[in-house]
Design a protein around this nucleic acid. Structure first.
Lengths: 172, 172
DNA sequence: TGGTTGAACTTGAACGTTCAACTACTGGAG
DNA sequence: CTCCAGTAGTTGAACGTTCAAGTTCAACCA
């Protein structure tokens, strides 16, 4: 831990309000998403994101490291998650032909069916708690704020620089 | 799962951009906070929040259910967390005098010391990734957006209505 | 060609969270 | 006073994530 007493720039009152609101709101929102998806489709939000990312890829297939970056996940986390999804029959692993170190993850038909069933309820929950409460201007503000944060996350702190690929995703 | 095919209001392109940006950014931000706190102070962000909330309470003491609401935590989660914090010597449990079902959690001197050591690095990380990149207008926008979300979270979906107490906290 | 560095992925243990009981107590209603 | 519904809190098992190895292969260099 860096010792820095006396020179710490504490949060301004407005920043503290923003921080407490954001932390409380995003925590409760994420909990609501997890509860809804777990209850209705037997998976947490993180697993839904994996299926969703796969569903939009060519051949519904992506390389593990690629998929990890696209879902803001560590390789280990993704590996465990895909193991679980594979056991469910929702994803299939195969050898990457170009690079024998690589592994490809493919969404199965069954996985696609589960995703299609899950999607409406998930979108409804996101709308109910977030977008149906925000003005169009606020939606733009939210985008700008988090794009700014993402730009700063690129090459700092041990975050894999590949995470910046997400920017391309989000802006497409 | 409610069957609702055909009537689902999917996300608009602007909403999808906002959603992907927010999910990616907040996931990476939370991961960065957890990594920094774990590395420098041996605790995750959620535990820091518990210590912080206790530190600002009268007598550095709060009732468990109260503390759970203030930290957007389930009772079970808080109970496990406080057990761990107690084992560390950072928090002490005691019987609530008014209500024999109740338990009070108190921040110890040692816990206060750990929190004081942890705070500068934590604030620095929050600044580095968030506030130092946002304009004052964006800070206000962030507050408004999440206050709006919090207002909608009050009595829906099994979220304890007491979570609205957080609003008071954030607005103080 | 052989050796070294680093990338891709997996594994198992430790940790934190959720979920579903379960205990203990409170605040009425009869 | 007794009963009963509801509140406060804890517990243990299941689950998901992190962390620190470990394995396998690619890329580069000597």
């Amino acid at each position: 831990m860096q010792v820095d007493e006396g020179s710490t720039r504490w949060l301004e009152p407005a920043e503290m309000r923003a921080w407490l609101s954001y932390v409380a709101g995003s925590t409760l929102l994420e909990a609501a998403l997890d509860r809804q998806l777990q209850r209705d489709s037997g998976m947490p939000h993180a697993y839904y994101q994996i299926l969703a990312m796969l569903s939009e890829a060519p051949d519904r297939t992506r390389r593990m490291s690629d998929l990890a970056a696209a879902t803001q996940s560590s390789q280990s986390r993704l590996s465990h998650a895909v193991s679980r999804l594979e056991a469910n029959g929702w994803v299939r692993r195969s050898q990457c032909p170009d690079d024998r170190r690589g592994t490809l993850a493919t969404l199965t038909e069954q996985g696609m069916a589960v995703l299609r069933e899950a999607a409406p309820g998930h979108v409804r929950t996101v709308r109910e708690h977030l977008f149906d409460r925000l003005t169009p201007e606020q939606v733009e503000q939210l985008t700008d704020i988090w794009q700014t944060v993402l730009e700063g996350m690129g090459d700092r702190d041990g975050v894999p620089a590949a995470a910046r690929a997400v920017l391309g995703e989000a802006a497409r």
